[in-house]
Nucleic acid binder design. Structure first.
Length: 553
RNA sequence: GGCGCUAUCGUCUAGGGGUUAGGACGUGAGAUUCUCAAUCUUAAAACCCGGGUUCGAUUCCCGGUAGCGCUACCA
């Protein structure tokens, strides 16, 4: 049996979430660190569901964890579930008991309250009555069916000192006398976390345990278990925790959905940006690099780049603010439904006008609602919910993405918002908005006018250029009508023609372009004009300018 | 309460016995541009406190303080 802790051999690491909730950003980071360590050194990544707590485990949680991990796009090589290995845990516990390294504790399970009331000063270490109980009495009471927990018989009064060298925190020591007789088996026969975790780590030959710093002091117990199992202790590395701005650990109740990985996905983070962000929290390549591809991070990643202090995730809003900001799931559902109906109606209108081009185009009944939809989706500047650095990194990664990939990633967000664009159209639009969006979902707001049949109502005053009046707006729009009708719809021709027209009108480019931009986009802030016109096409542009003209009167 | 871990700009961090304490995000100002972005320039912004050790501590040691963790038949 090879020593798993021996250096040289390819490491085996594991990520062992317990499915008691959604995939937490902190867990995700632990997973990422493990993955980086494994892949950096061509080792093996094991995924193990630590699902021994039947009370709290849910299938939904298992699904949520897989969903999150799948989105991250980081793979693993082996997969296990602790609940399928309970026999092994029990047998191991029995072996430890047989060796005399554990004893039965018949004390009824107590609650946290009991603990406090009995709580004199100093830590509870063991119950002498149980620890010293004779084998005969213990056997007799067990045979009589009295429930008991199995506790580790921690060596006492021997001056034994436990020690290990942590991959991040360095040498750690603790006198065994200060370690309490922790439980191995619960009175219902189920293994505790400590037992199950160590038995599995030993059995799966895990060589490096990389986990949250909250386990640093638990490690001494684990050392004892490995010893009782006659298994070599693996290497340990504890990584600092992720905390909220108030220093408290991130909780869904207090800090809202920002602690869930799927929230980032749904808001339009790129997984590589999310990974980039998380690994920068508590780890540094020490060369001032921040924006990195997965490959770069993997090559650069080492344990001694890991920091020892907890890192604050800079989320500026509380749960309450979040609710005010973002549509509830019900609202989102409604938005989606409205969008779907709007698409259907638009299709009907299209078919009708094909059959009878002269008929007056009916206004889709739901246009108004579509506009609400758009506003509801667009309103929340969701960036405010996330760490600004995460948002910035995401924008960087979006800009680094090849256009076809960007377009593909964008599509679901348009669909979810009720648009139904053709892939070619998205590819045409993507270059115009990629520098204007930070989250993928921003694209919906940034590009809506490309996909809307009809522009939502806007304030006609916006058509009026700087230092100009309605008459000037009219003149510009009328000229634009002529120019656009006569010019080739490509960037350079439009550039030349429109600039020429502006000069003829005696206007600066900026003045002349604003009315056209607003007429065509329905707002002042938009992508560059010529490119926009090209993507929109002549017909749409002319039609929108005509409408604007009717409004500016 | 006991034990442990930690402490550099608002946030993430680099650094390290002598430095103008570096970078990034964010923020302010400016430049550029057909708007918005993007980009560029620039500004403000930090070594928790107190003792040592030392010629000299932000860095090393001790103490304090604060935060976090463990102290469950949760993980």
């Amino acid at each position: 049996m090879p020593d798993p802790s021996s250096s040289g051999a390819a490491p085996r690491v594991r990520f062992a979430p317990s499915p008691t909730g959604f995939l937490h950003v902190g867990s995700a980071r632990t997973f990422i660190f493990n993955w980086l360590y494994a892949r950096h050194s061509h080792g093996t990544m094991v995924l193990r569901l630590d699902d021994t707590d039947v009370e709290r485990n849910t299938d939904a949680s298992v699904q949520s964890i897989f969903e999150g991990l799948r989105w991250l796009g980081l793979d693993w090589d082996e997969e296990y579930r602790q609940s399928e290995r309970i026999d092994l845990h029990r047998r191991s516990a029995e072996a430890i008991f047989t060796k005399g390294l554990a004893y039965r504790d018949f004390t009824p399970a107590h609650t946290a309250d009991d603990n406090q009331s009995s709580g004199a000063q100093g830590a509870w270490l063991f119950n002498p009555g149980m620890r010293e109980m004779s084998g005969e009495e213990s056997d007799r009471r067990a045979a009589a069916g009295e429930p008991f927990a199995l506790r580790y018989r921690v060596p006492r009064g021997e001056g034994r000192v436990l020690h290990f060298v942590d991959g991040v925190y360095g040498p750690q020591t603790k006198p065994a006398d200060e370690v309490e007789d922790f439980a191995l088996l619960r009175s219902d026969g189920m293994p505790t976390y400590h037992l199950a975790s160590c038995v599995d780590d030993a059995d799966l030959r895990i060589s490096h345990i990389i986990r949250g710093q909250d386990h640093l002091t638990n490690t001494f117990k684990h050392l004892l278990i490995f010893e009782a199992l006659d298994a070599p202790a693996p290497n340990f590395a504890h990584v600092p925790l992720l905390v909220a701005p108030d220093g408290a650990k991130l909780s869904k109740r207090k800090h809202g959905p920002v602690v869930s990985v799927t929230t980032y996905r749904d808001a339009g983070f790129l997984p590589q940006a999310f990974v980039n962000f998380l690994c920068l929290l508590g780890w540094s390549p020490k060369n001032d690099r921040e924006f990195m591809s997965l490959e770069e991070i993997r090559e650069l990643f080492t344990l001694d780049g890991v920091n020892r202090a907890n890192a604050i995730v800079n989320i500026p809003l509380s749960m309450k603010d979040y609710e005010a900001f973002v549509p509830s799931p019900e609202q989102r559902l409604k938005i989606f439904e409205l969008g779907r109906r709007a698409i259907e109606e638009a299709e009907i209108v299209r078919v009708m006008s094909e059959m009878d081009p002269d008929a007056e185009k009916p206004t889709p009944a739901h246009t108004g609602e579509v506009i609400d939809l758009r506003e509801a989706v667009n309103r929340p500047p969701e960036h405010g919910l996330f760490d600004p650095k995460a948002v910035w990194l995401n924008a960087e990664h979006i800009r680094a993405l090849p256009l076809d990939e960007l377009s593909r990633d964008l599509e679901p967000f348009f669909l979810a918002a009720g648009f139904n664009p053709k892939p070619e159209k998205i590819e045409a639009v993507a270059p115009l908005i990629r520098e204007r969006i930070k989250l993928l979902r921003d694209a919906v707001a940034a590009a809506d006018f490309f996909f809307l049949d009809q522009l939502p109502p806007y304030d006609p005053a916006e058509l009026i250029p700087q230092k100009g009046d309605a008459a000037m707006a009219r003149r510009v729009l009328e000229t634009a009508l002529e120019v656009l009708a006569a010019t080739n719809f490509d960037h350079d021709s439009l550039d030349q023609a429109l600039r020429g027209a502006a000069t003829e009108l005696g206007l600066k480019a900026g003045q002349a372009f604003q009315p056209i931009r607003v007429a065509v986009c329905g707002r002042k802030n938009a992508p560059p004009l010529f490119e926009t016109l090209v993507v929109l096409g002549r017909d749409v542009c002319l039609e929108r300018i005509r409408r604007a003209l009717a409004n500016v009167a």
